[in-house]
Structure formats: structure tokens, C-alpha cells
Design a protein around this nucleic acid. Structure first.
Length: 124
RNA sequence: UGAGCAAGCUGGGCAGCCGCGACUUUUUUAAGUUGAGGAAAGUCCGGGCUCCGCAGGGCAGGGUGCUGGAAAACGUCCAGUGAGGGCGACCUCAAGGAAAGUGCCACAGAAAACAAACCGCCUUUUUUUAAAGGUAAGGAUGAAACGGUGCGGUAAGAGCGCACCAGCAGCCUGGCGACUGGCUGGCUUGGUAAACCCCACCCGGAGCAAGACCAAAUAGGAGGGAUUAAGGAUGGCCCGUCCGCCCCUCGGGUAUGGUCGCUGGAGGUGCCAGGCAACUGGCAUCGUAGAUAGAUGGCUGCCACUCCUGCACAGGAGUACAGAACCCGGCUUACACGCUUGCUCGGCUU
């Protein structure tokens, strides 16, 4: 889990990331990102729409994503706002694969600091 | 031991590491404590609480509907009554009124409700194939045909007469009551009220995004006095009530952010007493989530269970339904593997 100051928490921030940011897509999730000049923190928001299913399913998807972000947090470039949107295949995915998928999307967006040590985050 | 009926419980367990929300302490960055459900769900009822306001009357509208009790209240629960089903344990019931009125009763059938008469039966007339009259036993249709069965009676028949049964009315007995049991009477009244309707009882509206406060930004409000009309508010309509226009006084209001409301309550457990029970009273004891893009997650080990591969060992996959959002009482719906108690009907053995 992430502490409160590293999460996106109001709708204006979400709207700014959607409107001004770029995005990368995989089968399981979508990553929106936007450079935030006001802070050196990384702030992340999590989204699970009702298309995924009941509230237990949506909660589980968001928790898995939060945990994945926490694992990768030391390697992400600071000063960005991120939004992670869950897509239906995420429901049945195993946690290790979610971490790998997220790392691949972050590299694709150019947000990882040390591209050489690609697999370090997976060694748990 | 088999088949069933009823009531209830559990909701994978134990450790370790890394994290998150809240609270407490604190050297201010750490430590400790604590952290989803029986349905948290559907939002179908009822109440607490909050505001609007005065809720006053009538009409309209909505709800409930055997009796008694419980309860803050209910459409809930308990105990009964009646009807229906099951060999039984037991289960089901939207169970007031059809003699206040209106409507409807498809198809079939002669006829579906102030009765009527297709075939038939009987009498008379007659050209022996019809007419007039009587009749509602029998046939045929239908979910339902104007009480049922039997005896008498008759031209043939009919509550026309009688007995029993069903139903109706009155009286008496038992019961707080629904109702039950009995006697007497006159002989008889289709179904449908989850059709309109009638009767009895109940119902002001909106809901924690209620509502209170603070900050910035922006421009509206409260109290008093006076008072004509149009107009507006009071869930719908009518009456009634209030506001509007002007003057004076006061400083305050709005879902962007924050604080409160926010969890100790019709509270849980045990014992005793009252009650058939729902439940009530007394005493003792327990402390039990409060988030707001919304906290419960990830990994490892052992054990339990299910499925697949499989001779065993072993390996792999998985562990239901589902996530608090102001709080309670219910209802309804969902739920893997299991467990407990009581009872019924059989089989076998003694």
C-alpha cells in the first residue's frame, strides 16, 4: 500500500492527467502519466470501473495495483502524476504477472530510472 | 441402518516478514493497541435522528386486512382459529364484505344469472309428424348448470312432503376473541373483491450529499413595523395559513476544500424471576471499524478440505456468497466443504 501523500485524491487531478497526459496500454491495464512541475513526489491514482464487476472485484484489482506500485516505487522517476485504469483481464491475473506488466508499461513510458536492471523488481 | 421433517452453527486455521486506515503515547519518528458481514448486498418495509415547517379541515391518493398478544414501530415476530396438503414429523394460505351497487364469466353449451328450455319425459289435439301445454328427475357442454343422497309422492316431475348431510337465520354452552359444540326454524342464496368498489384502522415532506461551523471567492439573507392587487410557498385540488411591495435594525447565507455530525446503542454475554412463547424486569460482566478516489493487501512455512494427474507416496490448482459508509428492528435474495440438536416413517438385530 501507499501512504496518502503519494496518491491522487481529488477529481481535478484525475481530470488533468486524463486531459493533458499521455498513455500506454496493455491487455490488463492502461497507464496515464503527466509531468507535475509543482512537486518532486510521485502521485498515483487507481481506477476500477463497474465493467469489472461487483465491489469486491473492483477493490481487489485496486489493492493488487497498489501493492505492485509499492514494489516498483524506488525505481520510478519522481515528479509525475500517474493514473492506472484496470481492464477486465486483470481480474484473473496473478500478482507476479501484474508486477511484470506494470514494469513493462513504465519502461515503455520512459519512467524507469535504471533500464539496465530490468528484472530486479521481480526478485522477491 | 435407510428415507425424511424442523431448528441452529461455522464461513479455512496457526506462525513469520513487508505494507495501509484509526486511536494512544512520544524524544517527531518510532512504539503499542485495533481494524468488514451473516448476509455488510437488494433498498422492500418500519423506527430513531436532522431540517423544512405547523401538519388545521375536506376531497383525492397510498398502505394494511382471521383473532389475541409482543414491541419504539412494522407489511415483522409469538401463540391460537379456520381452510388445504402429507401415512407421519410437519408444511402452505393476500384468510374482512358477493344479502350496498356496478362490471366480467373465453371456448363449448339450449341456457353463465330478475333465468330459460336443445334432446328427453308426461298430458291433450292430430293428417304419425307436428302443434299447444306441463316438467327440470335423465342426456349432452363446461372450471362452474339455481343444494346433495335416499324414501315417499306424481300423468311425468319438482323441497311438493319426510330423514340425514351441506348451507342460512335465531337462541344457548365454552372461550377475552377468531371460533367451537348443541338446539330450534323456514326449506335455499353460482363464481370473481391480487375487477371497480364498500367497511375498519394507519399515513405531513425530504433525507447524513440530512444538518451545523470555518476559510477564500461571489453577492444574498434574518428580525420588526406597515399593507392594496397580480403572483409565489404550503407533495396533488379546494378552503385556510404564510410570503411578497415600502421603511427601520442586524450582520450573515451557498455540495470547492476543511472540521463536526460519526458511533455507547430500543448494545452483546451470563445468571435469576415472570410468561406456553415472542418478550419483559433485576443483577453481574464486556468494550466491539469509523474510511471519504474511500483503510483489511502481498509473500513464505506447516496443517485441514475439494478437484485434476496418479497404485500408494507425491505433484499441481483452488478454498463459497460476497466489502462497512448515520444508526437500529425486520423482510427478501446469494452462499463451497462441513458440523450439531430434536423429531417422524421404515428395515435389521436383541
Amino acid at each position: 500500500m501507499l501512504p496518502k501523500n503519494k496518491r491522487l485524491r481529488n477529481s481535478a487531478d484525475f481530470a488533468a492527467v486524463y486531459k493533458q497526459g499521455k498513455y500506454v496500454v496493455s491487455r490488463q491495464l492502461v497507464l496515464y502519466y503527466r509531468k507535475n512541475t509543482g512537486t518532486a513526489e510521485i502521485r498515483v491514482g487507481f481506477v476500477a470501473s463497474k465493467k469489472l464487476g461487483a465491489s469486491t472485484v473492483r477493490n481487489r484489482c485496486k489493492r493488487l495495483l497498489r501493492e505492485a506500485v509499492r514494489r516498483l516505487l524506488p525505481e520510478i522517476k519522481p515528479g509525475y502524476d500517474l493514473v492506472l485504469v484496470s481492464r477486465p483481464p486483470l481480474k484473473t491475473e496473478r500478482f507476479q504477472n501484474i508486477v511484470a506488466t506494470l514494469a513493462r508499461l513504465l519502461r515503455k513510458a520512459g519512467l524507469m530510472e535504471n533500464k539496465n536492471e530490468e528484472t530486479s523488481c521481480l526478485e522477491h
